[in-house]
Simulated assay, not measured.
Amino acid sequence: MSLECTLVGAKTLGPDGWSDAPVWLADGLLVSEKAGRAVDLSGYLVLPGIVDPHGDGFERHMAPRRGALREAEHGVVATASELAANGITTAVLAQFFSWEGGMRGPDFAEHVFDSVSAVRNSVAVDLQLQLRLETHLLDDFARAEAAIDRYGIGYVVFNDHLPHQRLSEGRKPPRLTGQALKSGRNPEAHLALMQDLHARSSEVPAALDALAARLKAKGVVLGSHDDSTTEDRTVWAQRGASVSEFPETLEAAQAARDDGGHIVLGAPNVVRGASHAGNIAAADLIGQGLCDALASDYHYPSPLRAAFRLEELGLCDLATAWSLLSAGPARLLGLVDRGSLEPGKRADLIVVDPHTRRVEATIAGGRMAHLTGTVAERFMR
């Protein structure tokens, strides 16, 4: 059941900046006239709900230990609760479809997609799916495309995690044994698979061209991942990939900007102050205007924290930083019904204590997804 109420007294971030105007909610939408009873939110901030364009933090709920997969649907519910507690009202769950096997393999991917499909209508947060396809998984392209069609997946990102240089030199990749164990294979079989996939590299470009064209024709948003050079990004732009996720260098990010692509960076990178993998810092790219959206990546609390961190660093004010969490990601995903607090859009908003910077209420599609603290008392009056 959606809320019908008027939020008053808060400092609200609207499309034109900060305002003291009331916010009206009815029928799951933001409306232009008074609705329901008034809820006093004096002393709080009301912000658009966070749209997370890429996150895999759900894995710890879906499979808390290797092989512990039987409670996956309950894991999705737990994920939705964690998302809401961190102000995320739309979450793209980024799931590998990879030769790496285990939690990155096609079997686990379809298990995740089934579980999300089974419970998504019972939670308030809008759970969407991203399929992260390994570029050399040629024999499973048809299976991946069938899953995209079956589950209505609207966002596909292409990855290549093969250690090509090591394989071309005839050397074993680092951490082979550990990765093999995660995949459920012995190290020899895992290495042989990588060698076979690497040997078919000449087949990959044409297969990707054809698959990308089919997906684009279906309206699927396509993205590249970990671009490191201008050439990397140019190839993907030519295939219709309108998103560049986590570019590793200034050169690659600038190439994405030049080709009109949307640039997604990691919020944990902003919070940490650096890339955990040693790539260019997200704050450096943001400072040069080379970011359209921040993603939770592997840590759902980070987007909220990153927005305040950008303000602290003096890179932008909070309103500008917040656009990287709401309007920016909504735009790149083609979600025109959310991302800003305007009449007619989904009632996706959060209530934040400006002193503790904690989310005390999250409303997604007009439904209460998270409620705690003093704000809970005010709603219950």
Rank of each mutant, 00 (worst) to 15 (best):
S122T: 14
A206G: 09
A327E: 12
V76F: 02
A199K: 01
H111G: 14
K345A: 10
V119D: 00
C291K: 05
V39N: 03
P64Y: 07
H276N: 07
V352A: 02
G366N: 09
G260W: 14
A213F: 08
L127G: 05
R150F: 01
Q179S: 14
D149P: 00
L25D: 04
R60N: 07
L167N: 07
S42G: 14
W24M: 11
A199C: 06
A91L: 13
R305L: 15
A237K: 11
R338G: 00
S244M: 10
L129S: 04
A85L: 09
A85N: 05
A241S: 15
R233N: 14
C291Q: 05
M194R: 13
P354I: 07
G55T: 14
A277V: 03
L197N: 03
D348P: 01
A295G: 08
P247M: 07
G289R: 09
R358H: 13
L304W: 03
V112N: 01
H54Q: 02
R171Q: 14
V336D: 15
I350L: 14
P303F: 05
S201H: 11
L181C: 04
K34D: 08
S98T: 05
L208G: 06
W236R: 09
T79G: 10
D353Y: 14
M62E: 13
S228R: 13
G178I: 07
P303G: 08
K216C: 12
G9F: 02
A327P: 00
L13E: 06
H161S: 04
S168P: 04
H136Y: 11
A91C: 09
A21M: 01
A369R: 00
A210P: 00
V76H: 03
M380T: 09
T12R: 14
N269P: 02
I263N: 08
I363T: 06
P247I: 03
L250S: 03
R60I: 08
K218R: 13
I280T: 07
A38T: 13
R357I: 04
L129K: 00
V46I: 11
